[in-house]
Amino acid sequence: MQLDLDRVSLHFGGVTALSEVSIQVKKGEIFAIIGPNGAGKTSLLNCISGLYRPSSGRIVFEGKDITHMSTHQRPLLGIARSFQNIELFSHMTVLENLMLGRHIKMKSGIVSGGLYWGKAQREEVMHREVVEDIIDFLEIENIRRKKVGTLAYGLQKRVELGRALALEPSLLLLDEPMAGMNSEEKEDMARFILDIAEEKGTTIILIEHDMGVVMDISDRVAVLDFGRKIAEGSPEEIQCNPKVIEAYLGEQVS
């Protein structure tokens, strides 16, 4: 198991956002989390990425307990994420945003970095290559010098995915990567997600509301409702699970 959540609970005052959620994610799989609004999907993702600390329970990533590890150290382990409401450095260009993904991997100090000498230059070139590959992969060559704030929504989503990829993560958390997109953009994004999992072997956990997409691309699906995991399994199993149907459509009137 690459990621192991063991009875994770999260409370905000008296409100329970998550209660005893356990999930296991295997290396290289696409794992979808679905559920009605307010079910706790984003809270769960935030616990994994470190923005929230679980009130109880344990999170183990690649054999290491990360429950209490600080947020900014997790990308170093290989956990990257995108956000539900785009969180990009909107005053920087696409290229600069992606280069920031390389930030923690840069070693040269202020002086040589500032003077752009020897090792620093080689390092920069190496990081630029990684970033250019990602730009190629996401088909955003034509906008790489543009300020992110001026881009269309669909493209911003794509840049955010690119920035997460720049960290070369082994676990990628995607919070509604297709929200607000038209069907063509959704298809592109689905293709990218499948390619990332296949070519790079990256594990992907995604939250998504579009059931068509979820059922098409995920290997396994977990369903949350009111902070509780009510079902888990392959897309086919989830589709005919009565508990899931009840959570989405309400109880059957007998």
Partner: peptide
């Protein structure tokens, strides 16, 4: 650069390991 990034978006900066 990390300072500029933090100024722009703190959450995103955290998720980039800053």
């Amino acid at each position: 650069i990390a300072m500029r990034a933090t100024a722009d978006d703190q959450q995103a900066a955290l998720s980039m390991g800053i």
